[in-house]
Each structure stands twice: as C-alpha cells, then as structure tokens.
Design a binder for these strands. Structure first.
Lengths: 227, 227
DNA sequence: CGTCCATTTGAGGTGGATCAACCCTAGTGG
DNA sequence: CCACTAGGGTTGATCCACCTCAAATGGACG
C-alpha cells in the first residue's frame, strides 16, 4: 500500500469546496500538521479490519465504504463516506471495520500520532476528535433503528433521503455505489433494493436517468414512508 | 424527576465491585467532582430522547435500556447497561436515545458541566470521555452486523454470549430483562426469542431455573452458531 | 386460591430471500 | 461504425424464516 500518487502538502488551510465547516481543517489547521493526498482505484482496500490505525482520512473526491464481514462472507456496510467526510479515526490502536474505495477516490490523510500529539497539547483538538466519533455513533444509532425495525420500503426511503441530504440537496443525485452495496448497507438483497426503487419510480416519487442517476420528485412522500 | 432517594457523596474513590478499571472513577477521581447516587423504579424513565443532557450516569445496581422509537411504536433497544457501565454521555447538547430502568436501579451521576470543565483543564479527562464514546461506537458497529446479517438463532447466541461475558462469566446468569426487551434489542419478536431459547434448551446448550435464570452448558456451541 | 403478567407453544400467513432469466449500457475491438 | 461482451440492473416465480394471531402454561404475589 501507499505506492501511488503521493502529493504531500503543508496543512492545506485554503478554502475547500464544502458547505459545512471542514472537520479536517479544524484539526489540521489548529496544529499545523502535514496532510498528504493519496488516491485509490475502485474497490481498492484503504485499510483492513483489525489493522493498525496509523492514519486518519478525509474523502476529497469519490466515495468510501466501511464494512464488517461474517466468516461466510455476509457483509454489513456501516457507512458510506462522501467528499468532506472524515474516517479511520480510532481511539484504540486498530481499525474496527475495513475501508474500501467505492469508485476511484482521492483522500487526504494525516498521521494518527500527530493528532494524538496535538491533542495532548490543545484540548480543542481532543474535543474535535471526540465530536467526530460522537457523530459516527449518532449515525450508527439511527442505522440500528433502521436495521432492527424498518421494512424494505422504509429502508430504501431512508437511504434516498440520506444520500439526497449528503450528495445533492438540489436536483440530480449521482449514486457512486451499486445495488449490492446499497443492499449490504440496508440489510436487504440487491433484488429487494431494485424492486423498491422500481416501485418508487412507477409511483412517480423519483426519476431515473441511468440506474445510478436519480432525481427525487417527491421528498415529502419519502419522508412519510420513512416512518 | 430527581425527586427520590438522594444520596450525595464526595467523589467516591473507594474500591468498587468491578473487575475492570472503573471508567467513572477514572473521571471523577481525576478532578475531584461531586458524584450523587439516585434510584429509579422498574420501567421508570431516566432521560428522554432529545432531552437536554445534563448528567452523565453510571449503573451501580440494576440495569438500564436505551432505545429509539418509530412513530408507530416500533422500538430499537440500542444497549443494555449493567453495573459499572457509563451512559448518558453526549458530546452534543441533548440525548439521542431514551434511557429507562429495566428493573429497580441505582445510578451514580455527575453534572455534565463539571466534566466539561474538568476536560478543559486536564486532557486526560477529555481523552477518557472520547474513549467511552468510542466504546459505545464499537458496540453499535458490532450490533449493526448482527441486525443486518445474522439470522434469529445467531442473534440469540450472540446475545447470550454478550450477557454471559458481562454478567456472570461463571455459572448462572440472571437476566434482568423480559423477552420483549431481548426481541427489541435483537430485531426479533419475543416469540422468536422464546423459540430460539427453547431450542437451545432442548439441545442441551443451556439450562433454565426460571425463565430468566440461565446457565450456559456449552459456550463453544454458541460461539460456533454465532457465525 | 385466584389474579396478573411473562413465557411458551401452536397454526397459519407473508415479506423478503433465493434462484433464474432477461435486459440494458458501457466498453472493446474488429 | 457496429458487433460483441461483460457486469450491473431488472423482473418473475417460488420458497421459507420469521411474524402474527391465538391459546395454554407457569410463576409471583396478594
């Protein structure tokens, strides 16, 4: 690993193209850390489960999935990471999920040890790390509710609203992941995901232009069926 | 709320009956905070979802469940908290799940603001808060795998091993929660939980002495079926 | 001893999984 | 430029694990 396009740069505090405050810059800007850019091909592993957590990452371009596997290959995707999202942050020593690029992806990364050091000096850095983990926990708690209680259509509606919120907000949404990934995220098979999307299409709730180019025509309808 | 047996005591640093290092004392001992004891009756609410997070709690005796509800009453229990466990810690301002006493329960609690203050002075306190949240995240990630991938028998086996690990370790395990709670934790109905336990009983994997008094006779068998 | 609630057990229904074609579309190469 | 191919996506038919509804059993407590 780490054998591709390396593009080191000093703590890039220049404006980044995200609406929300940039979590990564809030960290690196604070302490003047060195951030490196790195790229991964579609389906390439970024880190493995139980591997030593040496870096913390932020998606610049592309998309990342994190997941756990059972011994027989059943897979639960814990999260999709999109541009701006931070991932790979651990308070312990090793990663608890595997991370892979969903499509060709560029990330920024900093050494975990630098962050630890910065957190030892500045309590605000420590606080920020805590908040990032707490955000992941909030997402996981919502997702447990989905996996434990919701039916197939409710799950797909939740997924579309989540992606709409994080990807587009306006008009067209370009999903980076395939139906199998969506199924493994929602605890459904790819066929069930496909059927739910087809039904929403024929109900006029959404439009397609290519299987992964979706435009939501009736967000309120989706919110209603999300339960 | 807060109208029952109040039992204030200065940061009780005396030995507590837990094998593992006590997370709460690691916090309160560090900063000399005031910890208060408080008791709740069976099924009493400790705090509600979206309520302001004013206190951080530790179970002394009894058991607590945290959960989220859908509008129609479907419930996902996120965690059972047992003696020694810390809960109610938030990095934001409000609780994201409801907490209720499963049985008559006594907790120790400290004001969140005191912890915030302590964390502003001592980076080790901040670090400890982060680790507690990270521990909850690890549990949630494992539970997503269970809810998204495992079948009924695998879920019940996981549950028994988890409770065995946290409650007893040795011999008999006294479950504080009813079958409905177990079902809402595992994403199953109470009947399915009951059937799985009955089958494990007739397979000789576990023994009953009362529906909630369980002794595991073959942990390895449970681990094998846990996938 | 009777009441109440938790639990077990049974019988039947169903939502989503499984298995199997088939269909698109993008990419390849002639 | 078009035929060919491969991988993703859709759709259909069937199955079954779990849910639902219902009734019986058991245990705790007045």
């Amino acid at each position: 690993m780490l054998t591709q396009s390396l593009n080191t740069s000093i703590s890039s505090t220049k404006a980044v193209p995200f609406a929300k405050p940039d979590q990564f810059c809030a960290l690196t800007g604070h302490a003047g850390l060195v951030a490196t850019e790195f790229s991964y091909r579609k389906d390439e592993e970024i880190y493995g489960e139980d591997e030593l957590a040496e870096y913390v990452y932020q998606v610049i371009r592309g998309a990342v999935r994190t997941y756990k596997l059972l011994s027989d290959g059943r897979r639960q995707i814990g999260a999709f990471l999109l541009p701006g999202d931070v991932f790979g942050l651990e308070s312990g020593t090793s990663h608890r999920l595997t991370a892979e690029a969903v499509i060709d992806t560029t990330v920024r990364l900093v050494k975990r040890s630098s962050l630890e050091q910065a957190a030892g000096v500045d309590v605000q850095v420590g606080r920020k790390l805590w908040c990032i983990t707490a955000g992941e926990l909030r997402h996981a708690e919502n997702h447990m509710l989905l996996l434990g209680c919701k039916n197939a259509m409710e799950r797909v509606a939740s997924f579309l609203l989540e992606m709409d919120h994080r990807l587009a907000g306006t008009g067209m949404m370009a999903l980076p992941m395939c139906r199998k990934d969506i199924g493994d995220y929602l605890g459904l098979t790819l066929e069930t995901v496909s059927r739910a999307l087809s039904q929403l299409h024929s109900d006029g709730v959404l439009g397609f232009s290519g299987a992964r180019q979706i435009v939501l025509r009736n967000r309120q309808h989706l919110r209603n069926m999300d339960a």
